[in-house]
């Protein structure tokens, strides 16, 4: 198991390197430098700026320099917000996005898995159809539609919750969390239903019943573990989805998180910010994929066994 984790971590390094390289060069070949949008700037000023941001060096030197910075955890200064570093901007937005993603994940996992398991227990009955229709609704109602509609109904017409902002009130966080989480709740519901149906038709479930175990033991102890394996494997990609979903949700609800910064940076062509955030997001996503991979293996004794044998 330990060796497996080490080898997966080692595999993640080339992935990250690819991400950094692609992003770095994409941003460099982009038409229009960061300062070109401004009104006529004296050439000497541009020169000074370029020197300050090392833009006058050969590109491979810039690349190596950037890699070196990254290794030391430095994302460099922001083009747009002079005097502030990308690190500071990320540090400011991260806690908010993390909190939002956490709530959304909570919504997704709790509602999704419960609905899916519940539906799988009585397939092709109302107990199955009702949660699964709701899940279909969640899948076909994307966050950028769901969010505004929720705001319109609960924020504007009923005035139950604030329409935007990110204060301390729990009311501030309900709508964004639901908006961001509902799509994934729906997806997880379908996934866990499928997984549970598959497992509950296995021979060993019949064995458990033949042993005279109460039905709840059969479901929770013998069924759930195998049934949730696809769910666990999906949590990594789901996290990646939540991060990109935060672009939209933070824009709709005007939440000052990383996602909103990223979209703004994209429009402002704040290249160091884009570069830094992309690398940062990518690292997070790769990490979460790694984590969900490791957990999937860990909860599956057969895979664990193969690892031990294949050493």
């Amino acid at each position: 198991m330990f060796r497996f984790i080490i080898s997966r971590v080692l595999q993640a390094i080339p992935v990250l390197l690819v991400v950094v390289t692609i992003t770095f060069f994409l941003v460099r070949v982009a038409p229009g430098g960061p300062f070109s949008a401004e009104k006529a700037v004296p050439p000497e000023v541009i020169k000074a700026l370029e020197a300050r941001y090392h833009l006058d060096e050969p590109i491979w030197q810039q690349y190596l320099g950037y890699l070196n910075d990254l290794v030391h955890g430095e994302f460099g200064p922001s083009f747009r917000y002079p005097g502030r570093t990308v690190n500071e901007l990320i540090a400011g937005g991260l806690p908010i996005t993390a909190e939002l993603a956490f709530y959304a994940m909570l919504v997704a996992v709790i509602i999704g898995v419960c609905a899916g398991v519940f539906a799988a227990l009585k397939p092709n009955t109302p107990q199955d159809y009702i949660p699964m229709s709701a899940a279909m609704l969640g899948i076909c109602m994307p966050s950028f539609l769901m969010g505004p509609l929720l705001v319109l109904v609960f924020g504007i017409w009923f005035e139950w919750v604030p329409v935007s902002g990110w204060g301390d009130l729990p009311g501030d966080k309900i709508l964004p969390a639901i908006t961001l989480g509902s799509g994934y709740a729906a997806f997880l519901a379908r996934l866990s239903r499928g997984g549970m149906l598959e497992v509950m038709s296995q021979d060993y479930i019949r064995t458990a019943r033949a042993k005279g175990l109460p039905e709840w033991v059969v479901v929770l102890k013998h069924g759930l573990r195998g049934g949730l394996i696809p769910v666990v494997a999906f949590l990594g990609p789901a996290f990646a989805g939540l991060l990109s979903g935060s672009f939209v949700v933070e824009t709709i609800f005007q939440i000052p998180g990383l996602g909103r910064f990223y979209v703004q940076a994209a429009f402002n062509r704040d290249y160091t910010m884009i570069l830094g955030t992309t690398v940062f997001f990518a690292t997070l996503i790769v990490l979460f994929n790694l984590l969900s991979d490791i957990v999937s293996v860990w909860i599956n004794p057969k895979l664990r066994h193969q690892l031990r044998e294949g050493k």
């Binding site: 060993y204 195998g226 599956n300």
Partner: peptide, 8 residues
Amino acid sequence: MTCLNPYL
């Protein structure tokens, strides 16, 4: 092969 729970 299939009648014992592989996870327990």
